[in-house]
Design a protein around this nucleic acid. Structure first.
Lengths: 202, 202
DNA sequence: TCGTCGATGACATGTCGTGTCATCGTACAG
DNA sequence: CTGTACGATGACACGACATGTCATCGACGA
C-alpha cells in the first residue's frame, strides 16, 4: 500500500529497472532463437548485466516467463472472503470472474503470446504445470478453511483450477472474441453437462 | 508383441540389466540422501556404469523416477476401444478401473513411496505435473476421435485425469485400505455432488 | 575368419546455478 | 564536510547437469 519514491541522478552507477531489462531481453531472444537455444549469459549481456545478476532476479531461466505471480495469494484471499452461504462451485465462479476481469481482460494479446511460448517448450510446460499444482494447493487450503472436508476441498479446488486453465487457454488461444468471463461460464456449463451421474447402485 | 530372447554367456563384456541397476541405485541414493543431494555420477558409480551411460537411458535425472511410462498409450487405446454407446464419463470410469486394476492394485507400497518422493521434490513435481498434462492431451485426442467436440473433449479429458490423479494420491497416500477402484468411484461421486448446477439464466 | 552391430567407456565441451567477496554510488548521521 | 553503513552489481570460481563424438570390444552371423 506504500509507494517508494526513487530518484535517479545523472551520475548513477547503474541503469534503472534491471529486472525489466532482463525480462525484455529474454523475451526478445526467446522469440528470435527459441527458448532452448537462448542462454542466460546472452540474456544478461543484452540487458547489460552479468549472468550472476540474472540469477539474483530469477531462480531459473524459466521464471522470466512467469513474472511475479501473485495469483495463488489473490485466489486464497478471494475464496476466504466469499460469502459463507455460497455453494463451493459458486465461490469458484465468483473468484474466477474477479481474477479474469482484474488480471486478464484487456491483455488478450500478451496472454496469448505467453501461452503459445509455454505450450511450445517442454521446460516451460513443466513449470506451468507445477504452477497449476501450486494453485490447486492454495485453493484447497482455502476451501478447507471454509469447512469443506479434505477430499471435497481437493475436488473443488481441482475443478476450479481446471475451469481456470481450460478457460484461459480457450480465451487466449481460441478463435473467440468474447470476454473471458463468458468463456468461464461456458466451461462451467460444459462441466455440468459432462459430470458423472450419481449412481443409485451398481 | 514380439519378445526378444537374450542369452548371456559367462564371458560377457557387460553385466546385464544396466537400466535396472541404474534405477535401483538411484532409488537407494534418493532415499539415503534425498533427490537433490544425489548426483548422476554417484548413481552411475553405484550401478557400476559411467555418467554418460546414465544419460543414454534417461534424458534427465528425474526420469529415473518415472520409469518407462506407457500409460498415455494404454489410456488412448482403452478409450478408443470402449463401447461406442457409453457416455464419456462412463468411458472414463471404465478406463480408470482397468488401469487401476492392471497397473496399480497390488503395488500400493511402491506407488506410495514414489508419490511421497515426488511430492517432496520440486523438480519431480514439475515433471509429474507435466506427465499429467501429457495424459490430458492423449485422452483429449482419444475423445476427439470418438466424436466429441473440441471443448467437450478437453473438459472430459481434464475431468478424467483429475479423477485419476486425485484417486491415485488418495489411494496411495491416504489412510484407507480399500481397493483403488472404489476410491475412483468415491471421487467420481464427489465430482457429481460438487458439480456446478446448470444455470437457467442469470 | 571376417565384418557388422550394439552396448559401453573415455573425453571434451558448454550451460546451469550458486557461494563469496570486491566495488562503488547513495543516503544519512554527525 | 566527512565518514560510515547499505544496497545493487560485478568478478570469479566451482560443481553439477547434459550432450556430442569417437574408441573399444564381445556377440553373432556369413
Amino acid at each position: 500500500m506504500s509507494s517508494r519514491v526513487i530518484t535517479y541522478t545523472e551520475t548513477m552507477r547503474w541503469a534503472p529497472d534491471a529486472r525489466g531489462r532482463l525480462v525484455g531481453a529474454a523475451l526478445e531472444l526467446f522469440s528470435e532463437q527459441g527458448f532452448g537455444a537462448t542462454t542466460v549469459p546472452q540474456i544478461a549481456a543484452r540487458a547489460g548485466l552479468t549472468t550472476r545478476t540474472f540469477f539474483r532476479y530469477f531462480v531459473d531461466k524459466r521464471e522470466v516467463v512467469f513474472g511475479g505471480d501473485e495469483i495463488p495469494e489473490r485466489a486464497t484471499r478471494l475464496i476466504a472472503d466469499a460469502p459463507a452461504e455460497l455453494a463451493p462451485m459458486e465461490v469458484v465462479r465468483l473468484v474466477l470472474h474477479r481474477v479474469a476481469t482484474d488480471q486478464f481482460e484487456g491483455h488478450r494479446e500478451q496472454t496469448s503470446a505467453v501461452r503459445r511460448l509455454i505450450h511450445a517448450n517442454d521446460p516451460l510446460r513443466d513449470r506451468d504445470a507445477r504452477k497449476r499444482d501450486d494453485l490447486v494447493r492454495a485453493a484447497r487450503a482455502a476451501f478447507l478453511e471454509r469447512g469443506e472436508s479434505p477430499l471435497q476441498a481437493t475436488v473443488v479446488a481441482e475443478l476450479g483450477i481446471l475451469v481456470f486453465q481450460v478457460a484461459l487457454d480457450e480465451w487466449a488461444l481460441g478463435d473467440g472474441a468474447g470476454p473471458m468471463v463468458s468463456v468461464i461460464d461456458d466451461v462451467m456449463a460444459l462441466l455440468a453437462a459432462e459430470s458423472p451421474v450419481r449412481r443409485t447402485r451398481s
